[in-house]
Structure formats: C-alpha cells, structure tokens
Amino acid sequence: MHNLQEPYKLEYPANFGNMIYIPADNPLTVAGVELGRKLFYETALSGNNQLSCASCHKQELAFTDGKQFSTGVDGSSTKRNSMALVNLLWTDNFFWDGRAKGLEQQVKFPLEDQHEMGQSLNILSRKLSEIRSYPGLFRKAFGTATISGELIAKALAQFERTLISSNSPYDQYLAGKYSPDSSQLRGMKLFFINPQPEKGIRGGACGHCHSGVKTTSQLYHNTGLDTIFTDGGRADVTGQTTDKGRFRVATLRNITLTSPYMHDGRFKSLNEVLDHYSDHIDEQPKLSPFLKDLSNQKNTKGLRLTLQEKEDIIQFLQMLTDSTFIKDPRFSNPSLISQ
C-alpha cells in the first residue's frame, strides 16, 4: 500500500445511518480534505479568476447564495437556484434533477459549464500547476504532483463529504438536550403526520417526502408548482414525459438560511412555501400521488392549513437551523485564517 495518508475521521450521529457514498478509489484523508477545501475557495477555478465554488455556495447561508439565480463567469444566470451543500455524504444523485451520479462526477459540471466557471479541466490543471502551493498539496493528498481534472474532482468531493450538519436544535431535541416550545412541538407533529379527516387528525404530510432525520427521501416528486413546464426537471434526464416537473426532494436542514426556495427560487419566504402546499397545489395529473387527495377536511381538497398551523410548521423548520455548521472553522475559507 503506497497510500499511507492519515484518514479523515467523519463524525455524525448514529441516527443519520451509514448509507453513505464514498467511492473505493477516493477515501477521505486529512490532506485530501484540506486540499479540497482550498480548491473550494479558489477563484482560479473559474475562467476569469473571479468565481470560486463559494461564490454561489456561501457557508453563512448553508452554502447557498441567497439569490434566485446565480451569476456565472459570462455574466449569464444559472437556470436553477443554487443548492445547499449539506449532508452530501448520504447523497448519490446530484442536482435538482439528479443528473450527476457521485460527487466526483458532479463537480465537473460547474467547473466546465460555460455559464458557471467556464474552463476545461485540462486548462484548470495547467493553471493550478503554475500556482506555487498546489503541486505540493496534490503530492501530499494523492502522492503525485501531477495535477489532473480527476484529482481536482476527488479533492473537492472529499471536502464536500465533510459538510455535515447534525447539530441543530432538532438534533439536540432528538438527543434529549433541547425542549421545543409548544408551537414547535405542534409544528413537528403536523410536519410528520398525514391528515386523516375521518378520524379528526390534522397533518401537513411533509415528512412523507422530507423524511427521516436528514429531512429528505432523495426521491423525485412533482410538487404541483406548474401545469406548463419550462423546466422539465427529472424528465430532462430520463426522457420520460411522466417525469416532467419532478425534482429531487430538497433537504430542509438550515432551510431558514437558504431562501429563495424551490428549484427556480420562486418563493421568497417559507410563508409562501407553506401557502403553496396548503392552498395552491394544482390538481394536475403529474402532481405526486403523495400530495394528491391530501385533505384535512372531509369532502374538501387540499391541506388548507390554518394560519396558526402554517406558523407552527415554520417554527419547527426553524429548529433545523444549525448555527455551528455555518460557523464551523473546518468549512471556512482557509486563506482568510491568519495562523
């Protein structure tokens, strides 16, 4: 074995489970993660040396950028809303439509996309070879100073896998260390429960898709945003018309920090999101079967949550904000730290 680098120790709560994705040929090492972190904040990664990954994925916003659409090197706007980079260790299909399998493949999209960072991996490799510190850092991480697109991707993927958010008040509550207030408790119940009007049980059914502690099933669903699709979503990947308007269930971790919402950033606030699920779900054929026919009242359609219920759910969503994640020095820009 020539790879005797110090392994990076991932830490996460047991209830996150071990269904994690680390390819056999890219184990996490301390040196690999450190290089990935430096690359993540490196503006040389873009054709005009002005954008880094962090331009569109800012730590203080749970690695989103607060914009409806992001601006790429050529001044054009991205087609979709920037995504939160959180708990990617448990993700296998990336982007709103799941078109990239594995983080190593995913990172090549923004790097090479003309409208994002706009630079071929070959040119980038050459550029980094000429920046003083990089050849040595690649040697430390991968045993070779010859920089390639593949190794750039591997290092970035290693860093991204460390972006674990598991210390929100909700996690503390699950660990018995946080007492939610009554509104949060009501919201939590509504979030996870399916409505059953015949039994007088009210619910929001959110947990069916935003399921488990990671608040996402990672599946593809149509949430009834549109009847005419300007963005085919999952259908653009599978070629199936039945997949039109389906997008990957988003994580709700740090959701208070990642507005605007949905794949096209159409909703500015969580109030607007709740209004959508409660009152504006289009009764269209492509709506997910798990949202269709949901009702809190016999013989009426739609969730029709009360103002208080919407507020309670939002109060629960606030419990998913992890203030340690957004301040964790291990995830910050390494060049800004004076040592």
Binding site: N93, Q218, L219, Y220, H221, T238, Q240, T242, D243, S288
Partner: peptide, 9 residues
Amino acid sequence: LLVKCADGY
C-alpha cells in the same frame, strides 16, 4: 430481488 421505481424509490 431489488425493485426500482421511476421516482427513485
């Protein structure tokens, strides 16, 4: 036998 669905389930 692993059964896969269109939504990824």
